[in-house]
Design a protein around this nucleic acid. Structure first.
Lengths: 138, 138
DNA sequence: CTGTATCCTGTGAGATACTG
DNA sequence: CAGTATCTCACAGGATACAG
């Protein structure tokens, strides 16, 4: 299990393999929907349409693709019930559940600092306007 | 601050604002280079070319854009020394440093589970080959 | 209900060349 | 050295229609 409770364990920037894996994993969990889906499934097993409804703005196609990728990475299981109106349930694997920790950490960070970021952006954009405008402002 | 396997602080999926902010922030830190740059700067102030050298594979353009975005979000500072051969130094802001925690959490997770994922992928791909090939295999 | 197949667009990002 | 400006291409991802 992870060394976890406390401060950051790793970050030996030397680890080149991990570095490559990082950008790989990050482009997966960093895509538009993966984190949201994992977070949803963190609350329990759900079926396709349920996920679709709860995940605002996702297209059928993207939900399918996202779930397939997560399944391929061993983060979620896909269970098909061969019934007449097909039913498919998705759930986190044990591995998938271990991802919830880091995701929540990120989530907490965002909810804690989103205001700072919004503020920083406004300040930055305002500053840019002063130096930028060879173009008439008003 | 959160840390490990156990229950976490947040995740009231209801928080819609945070949810939107999530996908926003995620698409920033989830892009190909931001996390890597922040991690680099976690080790201290660096200048442009230094970052360029240490960040394998990044193009000049992408480094510039990434840094600009991070600056705009208030995560890094950009200090220009008006010398003859220009020198520009980048460093994490206090806000930027708070991001190191979650990033390290993710980093740890990756270094800990990259093998599981690689394995899961191979297993999945192998399974697909069996059911897939209306196409002759051998 | 749970997908797959197609089409189409925006944009992320590399390569290259030029400037202060 | 540190950047900006273009060009280009690949691909993520939305909309829509069809299928088991």
């Amino acid at each position: 299990m992870a060394a976890s409770t406390g401060r950051q364990t790793a970050m030996p920037t030397s680890e080149h393999g991990t570095c490559l894996a990082m950008s790989d994993i990050l482009s997966r969990i960093g895509d538009k929907w993966s984190v949201m889906i994992v977070a949803q499934l963190g609350q329990g097993t759900m079926r396709f349409s349920e996920l679709r409804r709860q995940t605002d703005g996702i297209s059928q196609r993207m939900l399918t693709l996202t779930l397939r990728n997560l399944e391929r990475d061993g983060l979620v299981t896909r269970t098909v019930y061969p019934e007449v109106p097909p039913r498919v349930e998705y759930a986190l694997t044990p591995l998938g559940k271990t991802l919830l920790g880091p995701i929540y950490a990120l989530w907490d960070w965002v909810s804690e600092h989103q205001d700072d970021i919004a503020e920083a952006r406004m300040a930055y954009d305002a500053g840019q306007q002063e130096e930028a405008p060879p173009r008439k402002i008003a």
